[in-house]
Design a binder for these strands. Structure first.
Length: 304
DNA sequence: AGCCAGGCCTGTG
DNA sequence: CACAGGCATGGC
């Protein structure tokens, strides 16, 4: 798979500019793959690798401002996947009508490379919740159990995402109070598994996608969909193609109009039709269905 | 008001 | 394998 060298221009101890094309911050950071970014009008504030950071679009890419001096910006270029050869990614998508529509209406949508632990907890919290509710849960967990960070002058206080140890210390009752509901024991079990080393999130990097999926789904509350989200959004596995309610409806309506494909058929289609960057294609179709096809919002979605 | 949410688990045909 | 019900909580 081809990759490119990110172009970084350091403009001050706390600021850098990244030259990149086809990267829409708004579309990307509100696409339901991350849950801690907030729009501040001119930019987006978030926490990456324990550093509060503000991202703003510029004429030639993205400008980043950190709350403390930064010697090496590679933590951010990795997070933003600026080494992806994005032209090659888009060229790899199948040339069919749904993909063309998704590409047209989701210009600059990118995948992010998230820390595995935060990603795992986020998607454990995601089951039968709307994206705004997931954001609330993750914010509450961070505020109550994460370590405080140095914020920007005049900005709200910021906390790091809590470690497994911090969530174990919190206990199930306090996790429940973050609106986790029945997911609280699942998050606690995941925290204990990682803390004790029973599940080593670093070791997953060297496994095949199938092996890593099996390891993740041993956790209670983690089934194939959540595992695929973690594999795609944290481990960059392009053969992970999360099938949630939106994707099942979207694939059926867009690719199998007036037929009734079984879930198994859709699974097989997802795994074979989209090429080497299938995970990326999935994100385009998900965002397209959710944002631009309100007719797919109901359970009985019809083809247009 | 009531349906449903980037699901999963358990139990049944 | 397919489907049903339950699960907390709240947005729209």
């Amino acid at each position: 798979m081809t990759s490119i060298e990110p172009r970084v221009e350091v403009v001050s101890p706390t600021r850098a500019r990244f030259q990149v094309r086809s990267f829409d911050l708004h579309t990307t950071l509100s696409s339901g793959q991350t849950f801690r970014w907030r729009s501040t009008g001119t930019g987006w504030t978030g926490v990456v690798a324990g550093r509060p950071v503000i991202l703003r679009p510029t004429e030639h890419g993205i400008e980043a401002e950190a709350s403390v001096p930064v010697a090496d910006w590679s933590w951010l270029t990795q997070y933003l996947r600026l080494d992806d050869d994005f032209e090659a990614v888009m060229d790899s998508f199948p040339d069919d009508e749904p993909m063309r529509a998704a590409l047209m209406s989701c210009c600059g949508l990118r995948l992010i490379r998230q820390p595995a632990w935060e990603c795992l907890v986020s998607f454990i919290c995601s089951s039968t919740k709307q994206i705004v509710q997931i954001e609330q849960c993750i914010e509450l967990l961070s505020q109550r159990f994460g370590s405080p960070l140095v914020s920007f002058p005049g900005h709200e206080p910021v906390w790091d995402f809590p470690t497994p140890e911090q969530l174990v210390m919190a206990g199930e009752t306090n996790l429940r109070a973050c609106k986790l509901g029945f997911r609280a024991p699942y998050v606690l079990a995941a925290a204990k598994s990682v803390q004790t080393g029973r599940l080593n999130l670093v070791e997953l990097e060297s496994m095949t996608t199938s092996e890593a999926r099996t390891a993740l789904t041993t956790l209670p509350g983690v089934g194939p969909k959540i595992a695929d989200c973690v594999l795609l959004f944290a481990y960059g596995r392009q053969d992970a193609f999360p099938l949630d309610v939106w994707m099942l409806r979207g694939l059926a309506a867009l690719y199998f109009p007036r037929r009734r494909p079984s879930p198994k058929r859709l699974r097989d289609f997802a795994d074979t039709h989209f090429g080497p960057w299938a995970g990326y294609a999935q994100q385009y179709l998900f965002h397209y269905a959710r944002r631009h096809r309100p007719d797919l919002r109901t359970r009985k979605a019809k083809a247009s």
